[in-house]
Structure formats: C-alpha cells, structure tokens
Amino acid sequence: MEFWIELLISVLIVAGAVFVFVGSLGLVKLPDFYTRLHGPTKATTLGMGCLLVASMTLVTNQNGFLSLHELLITLFLLITAPVTAHMLAKTALHHKLDIAEKTHDKALSKQARKRLNP
C-alpha cells in the first residue's frame, strides 16, 4: 500500500474515533437532557462518516475495484439521526424533564409541549 493512502486512512480512522469519543463525552458531561441530545446526534454522524470513508478507501485500494456499499450505512445514519433526536426531544418535553437553570426562554418549552403557538 502506498504511504499517502495509508496516512489518509489512519488520519480518517483516528479523527472518526475522536468524534465518536467526544460525542459520548458530551453525553456524560453536559448538564441537562436537551444539551446532552446535541452530543451524540452530531458528533457521531461525522465520526461514523469518517470511519466508513476510511473503510471504503481501504477496501477499494485492496480489491482494485470501487467499493461503495459503506455509503449505505452513512446515508442511513444521516437520515435516521435527526428523526431519533426529534423523537427523543418530544419525549423529553412530554415528561417535563428538568431544564438547566440558565436556559433562555424556558417558558417556550410549555408552549412546545402543548403544541401551541408561542
């Protein structure tokens, strides 16, 4: 394998793992549920994207033909991540979970729960 390709794959793998790690760190560290929601849904999509692109490059380079099927997983995660986040936020609103003290416009969450206009 050429040096440059190996370097590219290694960098992509490490970057992807770092993003996955940061997402999970946010899950543990952030103060309330709504802020925790931001960590996994964002950091994991790019993390997984990097890992899958690395896998794609490696397999293409080894087998000599274009291997694109990892794109399916990336696409699937990109489509489902916002849906999951939206449903979790909806659930949290209905359960009246604690909202961090310094959140602006806390009153809006009551309107959102009843699906009224602000």
């Binding site: 916002p82 936020a89 729960r113």
Partner: peptide, 17 residues
C-alpha cells in the same frame, strides 16, 4: 426540521399544531 437537527448546534424539538 431534519436539516436544522443536523446543522450547527440546533435540534428541532417540536412543531406547533
């Protein structure tokens, strides 16, 4: 709503009736 959830620091939580 999906685009808003995927992009800078925002998550769409609910839509009015």
């Amino acid at each position: 709503a999906s685009t808003v959830s995927l992009t800078p620091g925002t998550v769409s939580a609910e839509i009015s009736e």
